[in-house]
């Protein structure tokens, strides 16, 4: 099922309804690494995610979107959003299985239960999303994402609604479980980018900038001086961009 996680290369321009969002984009997302994408609101970060995910009905893209293994992106992507997107009428277990149901594949209940157990949700598998805390729900969403066994993971601010402690936990858990996959993570939080980014991009009006990252492997400790320095540097850059 799982092939080698590919690198993704995007070159071109992106517009929405005659409105040019990004001009001459040239982005290299390295294979099997965690890339963070920072930028002000409305600059086109989510649009870029949608483009890679193939949700392109409102997007006009002129250019090329390729992988190093020349295989199509379709069917190789899993997606986590800011909200957990759990379906309220399904139990946690059924939510984890929704991908297989939607594709009409055989249901691998054992695998889903193993994943839930590994993420500490075994006692919640028959409960409904409304019975879980925000952190537990986002862990369930992670289990659903892992169940997909995809090479490319797109994250659209998935931890931004969590409290600081739970967020740090989720960052570590995700980094551990998504190791070896090609991750593109849209975030507003310089601290998050400093902890998780093996590549950090800054998207500004019409252009993309690649920033330096600390040498430590991810997830970097929250109190590591290099990581904190990186966080400060990122915040300063974001502060300058905001004008």
């Amino acid at each position: 099922m799982s092939t080698q996680a590919p690198s993704i290369h995007i070159q071109g321009s992106i517009s929405i309804a005659e409105n040019r969002l990004i001009e001459t984009l040239d982005m290299d997302i390295k294979a099997g690494t965690w890339s963070c994408l920072l930028g002000a609101s409305g600059v086109g970060k989510s649009t870029l995610l949608h483009l890679i995910a193939g949700l392109t009905e409102h997007i006009r893209f002129e250019g090329s979107l390729t992988t190093n293994d020349r295989l199509p992106l379709e069917g190789r992507i899993a997606y986590m959003a800011q909200t957990d997107l759990l379906l309220p009428w399904l139990s946690i277990l059924d939510n984890v299985l929704i991908g297989q149901r939607l594709r009409g594949e055989p249901i691998q209940q054992n695998r889903a239960e193993t994943l839930l157990e590994a993420l500490g949700l075994q006692n919640h598998r028959h409960q409904y999303p409304s019975q879980l805390s925000g952190g537990q729900r986002q862990r369930a969403a992670l289990a659903r994402t892992l169940m997909e066994e995809r090479d490319i993971i797109l994250l659209d601010e998935p931890f931004s609604a969590l409290d600081a402690g739970t967020r740090a936990q989720m960052q570590e858990l995700s980094a551990q479980w998504l190791k070896g996959k090609t991750v593109l993570h849209v975030t507003h939080d310089p601290g998050e980018a400093a902890r998780l980014g093996e590549q950090i991009f800054l998207l500004q009006a019409h252009r993309l900038q690649t920033l330096d990252v600390p040498a430590l492997s991810i997830p970097r400790p929250v109190d590591d001086p290099q990581t904190l320095a990186c966080q400060g540097r990122l915040l300063r850059i974001l502060r300058e961009v905001a004008g």
Partner: peptide
């Protein structure tokens, strides 16, 4: 968000209708 998730997961329109 649910529609996007379903499509990224590779749902057919019929299954998307039925399950979501």
């Amino acid at each position: 968000g649910w529609m996007h998730m379903g499509r990224v997961m590779g749902a057919t329109p019929k299954r998307l209708l039925w399950h979501i």
